[in-house]
Nucleic acid binder design. Structure first.
Lengths: 296, 296
DNA sequence: ACGTTTAGTACGCTTACCGTACAATTTTAG
DNA sequence: CTAAAATTGTACGGTAAGCGTACTAAACGT
């Protein structure tokens, strides 16, 4: 019996009894297995695995070789993967997919020139990020030469709980979502300074919200600090976060608060006023538990 | 009768009679419809369509509403799309897909710091691109404030035939592929300066290859010029192109050739020497005709 | 209030997909 | 250099996963 048939058993609608944010997606009867599997094949590739063989992908994804082969042939036919000998690689075409998202986020475009000026002015890297579940995702970035241990570019992800942008974004979620996020977050002590306690994190979020910015010092990584402020949409809701990273050292905090923060605020006002209409999507914490099993 | 059954009729292997580059993909018996359709749903979103309703997507993709719904539910379940009211939007998660490709292209990482120095030195924007079929795809970019009519970012695409990076990349393809590319290109006169003649284009490509760089003046757009040089992998093959754009004006050409070109060459040598092993994929023109029907 | 468009549900049909099994090829090991 | 191991490619029967039509319900526009 098909999974879809279950609908008969359960009766009518899937009954949104859990206080889920209105429009949630179940893995309900409407679920296309092949699409899920195909996307997982793409995700099998990554930083440390630029080229994979059929068998490797099959092992990686837990799918049968026959299935992986069909999926790869399809992706190849569509131009998303290339084959050299027995190795498969992703093609620039998959970038196109991601680009769809970026170009549907106008603020990423409008912010760029402002970010360039800002980064030059203070000679530190500057990024724009949005929230996706537990992570901050970088949607725009202007780097300056400084050699940092962390090399981030557009599309990169960092845990929200220990980054300045993450805190700003979570702090400005509507109450219900923030609570949900806090309840589900799993903070880890990345350094000895990381706030890894749920309670303390909650209090910090309150503070961030009321003071309108987040300053994080060596919580993600030793030697690294950052300040972030919220970027607002037309109707005032937070749609992104803008941050500046700086090396830790004596006076880092003072510099962050007295020099950088005001510059960030100015940049934000510019962005807020510059861009015209579409104010869309900061992303939400809703998605937190709807991940594919083979997470992150 | 299933399409896969056809294999019985055709006998053994699909017979690579056409002089296709060794490992080509057919839309053969191994083809997963749902994956193709699902990816098309993602591609339905774009610059001018950040939020779409079910019916709009169905119209856009030519799929039945029931199918689109199932695909959207699946994408939603996996966290690739969000739903607000009746509108669907892409989430930052799709960026993750594109990011897989970028991070599997090491040169994009290694080039960044070099590009930053270069861009600052000459105060002009600098980009790194690879070839994908008929297009150049931007995989890294360092912009400077100058207001250009064209606003490019990572993931953007431009036709190869009328851009400096495109010419460099095509010029350095192996002979067979370059011929193929030339035979299939459909040049259009984007400005009165565009080389829109196949023969002239072929000659220009030869020149570009022998001289080791491409200079393009107002062929893509009036007021815009650019110079590009090839970036090499370990084994000497061209794996990307590095370019600098500059505004057109009297002396633009002179400046491009006497000031910018040497700087580009220097930057290239740095990149060539810097990065360690993996030299992968410049992308190829192979994929040119394996596009989904609802192309670019 | 009424027609029109859109979203959601139901369900029978079948094809598109699955996975096992086998053959051909390449790689590793001894 | 040959045997064993691993990987890719091919074949094919079974079926459930996905399809699309048809209908209902809700939302929208005027």
């Amino acid at each position: 019996m098909s999974a879809r048939r279950m609908r008969l058993a359960t009766g009518s609608r899937p009954a949104a009894d859990t206080p889920r944010p209105a429009d949630a997606f179940d893995r309900g009867p409407d679920y296309v297995q092949s699409l899920h599997r195909g996307l997982d094949v793409i995700r099998a590739f990554g930083v440390d695995r630029p080229a994979l063989s059929l068998a490797e992908i099959a092992r990686e994804t837990g799918l049968s070789r026959a299935v992986v082969r069909r999926l790869l042939m399809t992706l190849g036919y569509l131009g998303y993967v290339d084959k050299r000998g027995r190795e498969f690689t992703l093609t620039p075409r998959v970038l196109d997919l991601g680009y769809r998202y970026l170009s549907s986020l106008p603020v990423a475009q409008f912010a760029l020139p402002v970010m360039e000026r800002l980064a030059r002015g203070i000679d530190e890297s500057c990024s724009l990020g949005v929230l996706d579940g537990r992570d901050v995702v970088y949607v725009q970035r202007v780097a300056v030469r400084k050699v940092m241990t962390i090399n981030l570019s557009v599309g990169a992800r960092l845990p929200a709980y220990c980054t300045s942008m993450g805190r700003v974004l979570v702090a400005n979620l509507v109450d219900a979502e923030r609570e949900r996020w806090l309840a589900e977050v799993e903070p880890a002590s990345r350094t000895q300074f990381t706030i890894a306690d749920r309670g303390a994190l909650g209090r910090e979020l309150d503070r961030v919200r009321s003071q309108g910015f987040a300053y994080v010092q060596q919580e993600l990584e030793l030697g690294l600090c950052s300040v972030a402020v919220p970027v607002h949409g037309r109707s005032g809701e937070t749609i992104a976060a803008l941050n500046v990273g700086l090396p830790f050292g004596p006076g880092a905090r003072a510099r962050a608060l007295s020099e950088i923060l005001p510059a960030l605020r100015r940049a934000c006002r510019e962005i807020d006023s510059t861009y015209p209409d579409r104010l869309d999507a900061v992303g939400s914490a809703e998605r937190i538990d709807r991940r594919t099993s083979r997470g992150a």
